[in-house]
Simulated scan of single mutants.
Amino acid sequence: MLSRVAESLFWMSRYFERAENTARFLDVNFNLLLDLNNITHTENPNYWIALILVTSDRERFNDLYKEYNAHTVTDYLVFNKNNPNSITSCIGLARENARSIIESISSEMWEQVNNLYHYLQSVTPQFVHNDPYSFYKEIKNSSHLFQGITDNTFSHNEGWDFIQIAKYLERTDNIARLIDVKYHMLLPELHSSLEESEDSTDIVAGSVDIIQWMAVLKSCSALEAFRKVYLSKIDPDNILRFLILDRSFPRSINFSVCAAEDALWRISGSSRHRYVNNADRLIGKMEAELSYTSIEDIYSKGLHLYLADLEQRLVKIGEQVHLTYFAYHTPEIEPQDVEEALPFTGVAGGRANWSQAQQQQQQ
């Protein structure tokens, strides 16, 4: 397979998954505010700052908007074309990648990408503000339909494996960001504001805690699956255990890493006791550590530090996938520090953060 085709398949899949996850975060946040409205003050901008922190775009957002609220955050994450991670930008880039390899994908896949792209062009901000539920449901359903069409109309060869690698690396990164930002940084601030309020009570604080943790599960479509495994009350330890370490739920970190590992190893021929390249080594190391990690181990390291380290390791895996399969280079003359190098972007010979490389190529 041509590296150009593999790279376009990879980024087409990654951008679709990113758009779906952004829609999930926004949809759940709107519903979270409705649930909290009767028991606590919901105009706190912290509820909206969290969504920007998940995408690591706070500086760019502050350059464009003066405050955090439903209108500004929705505009930035859905419509703003200056934000490369907005839903509109992601679907546009997914469509461009699909168009560049239209002869390599099925007509049904192209039709689905194209339909969603034109749907987004026809939607207005006012429509989203008036009926966010219908809009975000359309984005999520379109992503599910695209994945189903891909699985059923695209040959399960190397190209399909690159699609799976992209999907599961992106999913792992998004779940880690969601847990880290929304419930390690935001929740303590909310609790402190409740404790300072004269009207706050332990019952209110406990209710907010439960609703917030349910929102985390809903963001991953995991609430029903969680309840089937853990029949007791909503408990943060069990939620983190389920979303990070569970090997059977398709949106947990452990499951996603295993799925990405399987796809990488199918392409290279690596096995449990023999890795072929650096990408296989790094993903195999991560999978092995997750297999033997307990929630107590995560707490002993610190949840924030653990997830930040995981996100950095995902970046390294992505870099190595790029260097191994997509970058135009001669391996024998790569510099000795190639493992630490960021991938070539194709723009004036420069280098940039690997997750933005394809976006810069499209500009």
Rank of each mutant, 00 (worst) to 15 (best):
M1K: 11
R4N: 08
A6F: 09
E7M: 13
M12Y: 02
S13C: 08
R18A: 07
E20H: 11
L26P: 03
D27H: 13
F30I: 13
L32E: 08
I39A: 07
T42G: 06
E43W: 12
I49L: 15
A50G: 11
A50C: 10
T55C: 05
F61Q: 01
K66P: 04
T72S: 14
V73W: 00
T74M: 10
Y76W: 13
Y76F: 15
N80R: 12
K81Y: 09
N82W: 00
T88N: 08
G92R: 04
E103L: 11
H118F: 15
T124E: 11
D131T: 05
P132T: 04
Y133S: 10
Y136P: 12
E138W: 09
L145K: 05
F146K: 04
F146H: 06
T153A: 06
E158H: 11
G159M: 04
Q164W: 03
A166H: 05
A166F: 01
K167P: 00
E170R: 02
D180Y: 03
D180G: 00
D180F: 00
K182Q: 14
L186E: 12
P188T: 08
S193Y: 13
E198Q: 13
T201S: 15
V204K: 13
D209E: 14
I211E: 05
C220N: 09
A222Q: 12
F226D: 05
V229N: 07
S232T: 06
K233Q: 14
N238C: 12
R247I: 10
S252M: 05
F255H: 11
V257H: 01
S271W: 02
R272K: 14
Y275W: 15
N277M: 02
A279V: 06
D280T: 03
L282W: 02
G284L: 02
E296M: 07
E296Y: 03
D297S: 12
L303E: 09
Y306C: 08
L310G: 00
L314K: 03
K316C: 00
G318I: 03
V321C: 00
Y325F: 15
V338Y: 02
E339R: 03
A341P: 04
A348P: 00
R351K: 03
Q356S: 08
